[in-house]
Each structure stands twice: as C-alpha cells, then as structure tokens.
Design a protein around this nucleic acid. Sequence first.
DNA 1: GGTTGCCCATACGCCCCCGTATGGCTAGAC
DNA 2: GTCTAGCCATACGGGGGCGTATGGGCAACC
Lengths: 218, 218
Amino acid sequence: MSSSSATADPKLSLTAADWARAALDAMAAGGLDAVAVEPLARRLGVTKGSFYWHFQNREALLRAALELWERRETEDVLARVGDEADPYQRIVKVFREANAGYRSGRLYLAIAAAEDNPLVNEFVQRVSARRMEYLVSCYQALGFEDVRARHWARFAYATFMGNLQIRRDSPDLMPSGAPFNDYLKLMIKTLIPREAGEKSAGDSHPHVVPMHRSSGHS
Amino acid sequence: MSSSSATADPKLSLTAADWARAALDAMAAGGLDAVAVEPLARRLGVTKGSFYWHFQNREALLRAALELWERRETEDVLARVGDEADPYQRIVKVFREANAGYRSGRLYLAIAAAEDNPLVNEFVQRVSARRMEYLVSCYQALGFEDVRARHWARFAYATFMGNLQIRRDSPDLMPSGAPFNDYLKLMIKTLIPREAGEKSAGDSHPHVVPMHRSSGHS
DNA sequence: GGTTGCCCATACGCCCCCGTATGGCTAGAC
DNA sequence: GTCTAGCCATACGGGGGCGTATGGGCAACC
C-alpha cells in the first residue's frame, strides 16, 4: 500500500523520515526494544554510519517515531470519521474502524506496553486522552450530561481496547464472520444507549448498523 | 504475608521457587526482557553461579515463572470468587476484584505484551481462555443461551481488560472515589442484563448493585 | 577426618547493542 | 579540475547479558 518500507529500496539516499517509519514498523513487530539502531540499519540495507548522520542518538529516533505515530493517530484515524454528522454513527464508525484495522490497534498495544519509558508514556497519555475526548464529545452530542458522557466514553473506550487485546492475545476467543457481526451489534447497541436527554434527530430507529467495510489500510 | 521478596533474605540458600518468584516480580516491573539472569542474581544477592545450578537456562526460568503465574491466576483469583452461589454476584465480584487488585492485572498486561514469544503466548492463551470460560459459565448460569452467553462474556472481559489498560496507560482518565463507584455501577448494570430468555432491544436495567448484600436474583 | 553432595563465586569467551572517530564516495558549485 | 557538502562504510572501545568451566565452602554422613 503506502510505501511501507522494504529491505532494499530504489532510493539511493535515506531520510530521517525513512528511519522513523522503519522504527515504527519495528515497534509494531517487536515492541520498544526492537527499535535498535543496528538491526534497523541492516533492515534498511545500510550501516550505523547512516543513522548517526540523521539522528543524534537512539532516543531521538524514538521521539521521531512517536511523533510520527501521534500524527498518524490524530490526523488519519480521527480525521476519517470526524466528518460524520451523526454522533451515533461516529461512535459506530470508530468501533468498526477499530475492529477492522487491527494494525493500528496492535501498534498502540506495542507502544503502550512500554509505558515505563517516560518518553513513551508522554505520547501514550496524549493519544489516549485525545481519543477519550473525542468519544466524550460524541456522547455529549448525543445529549449526555458531562459526567455520564465521560463514563460512557470510558466504558466504550475500555471495551474497544479490550477487544484489541483479546484479538491479539487469543484470537480464538474472537469470532469471525457473521457471529462477529452479531457481537459488534451487541456492543454497539449496548454502548450507545438512548436515554440521554432524548436528542431528537430521528425518532424512528436510527440505531441500525449499516454494515459497510472500508478497506483496511492505516 | 507472602513476603514479596527483598534484596537480602535471611535464607542462606535459594530455591528454584525463589528464582521463579523473583522472575515474576521482574516481569511485572519491566516486562519480559527484565527476566534476565544476571540482574536477577544481583537483586537476590547472589551470582549467576547460583542460577545455573537451579535452572538449565533462561527459558527454563521463564517457564517456571509462567507456571507460577498460571497457578496463581487459576487458584487464587478464580478460587476466591468461585464459591459465590449467585452467578450475578460472581460477575460483580470478578469486576470488583479486577479493578481493585490492579497488581494482578498489571502483571497480565506485562506478560501479554510479549505474546510474540511462543512460550509466553501459550500460557497467555490458556489463562485468558480459562477466564473467558468462567465468565461464559456465569452468563449461562444466568440463563443465557450459549452464543449470547459467549458474546456477553467476551464483552465483559474486553471491558475489564480495557479498564486495566486505561488505568495503566493514563490513570488520569480513570476516576477515583465516588465517581469511580458510579462508573463501576454503570458497567455492572450494563454488562449484566436481565433478558436472558428474550432477544429484543430496548431494555432498561432492572439490576441494582447491592454493594454488599447478595441480592435475591431470579 | 575424609568423602560426598549441595549451593554458590569467579573467570572466561561469546554475542549484540550503543556511540564515536574517521575516512571514502558522489554530485553539484565554481 | 577542484572544492564542498551530503551520505554512508569501517573500525574501535565500552557495556551488558548468556552460558560454561572450575573451584571453594559447608553441611551431613560414615
């Protein structure tokens, strides 16, 4: 898809962004410790000499990779569902995107697993806070009062994260196909109750799951 | 008691179990990579010479630590709420224990983060499957048909895991005190519906969280 | 008091990673 | 053609973890 790095590229010269991308890929595959200079250099077909020209040290690479991650996380993910008018559909979309584009979630888990690193922790905190805020705003738009909106948003976010974890750790426990869709419907129906303040906007049954998959990609 | 290990113990001789316990502690603190022979030896006040008398290599220690974890996980956690008669209260207890005893959950996250290790993955899969089975049996005892029981159990388990993740990665997003109790009540009320026999939507939540009393359910 | 077995210390070679120092190669400027 | 700047290779020292080899202390046992 989007030039997601290869072992040998036609490019004759690497950039700092190339290194940052490779670092993120490594992180998704092997966690924080996989962001090592020499292995990355080998994977990119160069040596350390290249790296230490573009970056001062390993931590600078880590910072660049995390910044890239944060950028993707807020620009890509949220901007793709942010144009949805109906707050209900916004939440539904978040859930669908989340459970389909497993790749982004896996990356989150890999990064968050290194929360003992203060630099990582800083980024994780910002990203998760921003996600929560988005969900809170959705529930508020549905008519929920602040505290309740925050509770429901946290609830939904936790469920979303837990599904990621289940899918990663024990995929056998996660159904696929039609049963999975039933599971999704159950969660959506449960996590978006309709007793906020009765925000009108369609009294019939707007709570229908449209069932449209957008192609994966980050 | 349970003497959570110290740097220098009165014991003049270490056992394999001591090493396994120390390995688990290290894992909870620093992930899989923290289970290193020489650092652990330093922490226990001995040298590698001791370790390689008790174990053949690092993987043997890892296996011992994971077996200890699995034993604790099934004997301690489940055996503590398993004697509860009311299935509703069983689920409530699981949720309460989970959100209170943050320690065990943090350990789970640390271990599960290393799912790329086949040995670790094997144990994680067994433990999570066993947890899920327990929850499924609770929902079945509540009268849920098999597939729906499995959906609700997965839902509850995912929410439980997600709350752990939130609490670890961004504790600021998790309320404390009275608001947290409201949050817990909301989740419990939502995740233990009462419509085992039917399948229609639009139900309210008749269950009340008793807090201490075992409610005469059914 | 010598022997045996348990538990551990010391020392070594190996590998892998970090960071630095230094030199080489290529393309464009002049 | 020379000079310069960008990009990278090579080589080195240091650190830390793994696994092994070997020996020492200390009990119990006979």
